[in-house]
Write a protein that binds this DNA or RNA. Structure first.
Lengths: 159, 159
DNA sequence: TAAATAGTTGGTGCCTCACGAACGATCCCT
DNA sequence: AGGGATCGTTCGTGAGGCACCAACTATTTA
């Protein structure tokens, strides 16, 4: 076990994160439906935009999803031509996944469409605070994804 | 409609929220299992601590869950004596739900136990940033009014 | 008295997702 | 060249979350 510091403020964000994510997701579903997307598609696209050019295995690690379910997810996105699977020239077993132009555009559209949903859920925060929140979430999301262990970056990825 | 400037920076937190919540939840499940809790129990307890004394209908609205599913959730928590259902004296149809002492204690324990999980997920943020994140999430979650000034703030000796 | 409301119970069905098994293609090592 | 490991793919299975419907009790309100 780790040492127990007498931290007076036991402020765990987990439950709040869960709560807000749920509220956001419920609204996102209806907003994204006309765009042919689901919340989890948006998560994948966002991750891909942040650190594109990853193999599907790495993507499974980042999203912490089973790799077999990644396939279906990417099939959806590829069918809509929002992502591309290209075989890696270095290792032809690998599929390098990247956003297409359409994908980036659709992601942007989705983000615009989600403005209303975010207004509802994050209504208590002013724009500056929302930007701070975004920045923190973004750093937390990409930081852990890129820097965690050395095992992920087997090859010379964009790490 | 809205006067949102269409900058190149359409910073929507929804997907990031979803992503991080998932990663946190995956870790929370195994951590909370020994305590007999599940992530969604923790969400309910957290909400109850923030604004206790609500009816179940109100709780369903806050958590945005179907009220029939709220019943089962509260049954779990009441069976463990972490919450109490009392009939409201004003309207005897209503069940006023509140944390018990055991509930507050268990919640604190859970939050302590989640330190490791949070370290993994929010590893890219330093303590000050995590506190900022918590504060933003907390404000967003409880709406605008954080009348926490008079709240009990039990978390001092339990850790 | 009649209608509306809060909670409870039971049941149904859909969707997500983790997990296992099998397969082709490819790399890597000896 | 051969054998084992790895990446991606497909299929199936099962557990669990959750929305929804229907019926019922207790209580408030018009």
């Amino acid at each position: 076990m780790s040492a127990q510091p007498l931290d007076s403020s036991e402020h765990r964000s987990g439950a709040l994160l869960d709560h807000l994510a749920r509220r956001m997701r419920l609204r996102s579903e209806s907003v994204l439906a006309p765009l042919g997307l689901r919340p989890r598609h948006l998560v994948a696209l966002t991750v891909l935009r942040a650190g594109g050019g990853t193999g599907q295995q790495a993507l499974a690690t980042i999203l912490e999803m089973d790799s077999t379910n990644i396939v279906g997810l990417l099939n959806d996105l590829e069918a809509k031509q929002l992502i591309e699977r290209r075989r890696s020239p270095e290792d032809r077993r690998r599929h390098v996944v990247e956003l297409t132009e359409d994908g980036a555009k659709r992601l942007s559209e989705a983000e615009c469409a989600l403005a209303g949903a975010e207004d509802e859920v994050l209504g208590a925060l002013d724009p500056a605070e929302r930007e701070t929140l975004y920045e923190l979430l973004s750093r937390a999301s990409t930081g852990t994804a890129v820097s965690c262990t050395e095992a992920i970056c087997v090859a010379d990825d964009t790490c």
